[in-house]
């Protein structure tokens, strides 16, 4: 019986202290970490069309089309299929694709979530956080060469 009363005392304490931990979401924009991985932003000016992001993507989310002069024609990214692993940002040598903090996006159909390069360019910053300024990517760590000689083929 004492145990029961003790548990009732605990819940009453919580009821009376008036503290809540839920957030009124759309009214209150939640804080997100600078490292948070949200929807992508793409810069056509920076991109050198090296296709590394397309290669490293684990589930073929990025589709790149180029003409025979290696000029980019299309850069499609299926933000609904993406698993937000951030490998494309890590592999990109010129910061052409970065993952913003933006997580608010919708689409009526799956097809609406296939973003082309214009849509990717227009993705807004979340709370004006520019990931490039707040993150400190350490690419030298990421692109290791391993032990032994490097063969330049």
């Amino acid at each position: 019986m004492i145990g029961v009363l003790k548990s009732m005392a605990v819940t009453m304490k919580h009821a009376l202290d008036g503290r809540t931990f839920t957030v009124e979401y759309p009214d209150e924009a939640p804080e997100v970490s600078p490292r948070f991985r949200g929807i992508h932003k793409f810069s056509q000016e920076r991109c050198i069309w090296c296709r590394q992001c397309e290669n490293v993507c684990p589930n073929d989310t990025i589709q790149i089309v180029m003409d025979d002069q290696r000029n980019g024609e299309a850069y499609d990214l299926h933000v609904g299929q993406c698993i937000y692993c951030r490998l494309c940002e890590e592999v990109c040598p010129v910061d052409a694709i970065i993952l913003t903090q933006q997580f608010e996006f919708t689409g009526a159909t799956k097809n609406d979530l296939v973003y082309n390069k214009e849509q990717l360019k227009n993705v807004p910053w979340y709370n004006d956080i520019d990931p490039l300024e707040v993150r400190e990517p350490d690419r030298s760590v990421w692109i290791g060469e391993g032990e032994g000689e490097v063969d330049y083929q």
């Binding site: 009453m12 919580h14 503290r19 809540t20 931990f21 839920t22």
Partner: peptide, 12 residues
């Protein structure tokens, strides 16, 4: 009441 016991805000 339930929200108060569970530290939530509930209908508002």
């Amino acid at each position: 009441i339930t929200a108060a016991f569970t530290d939530r805000i509930a209908v508002n």
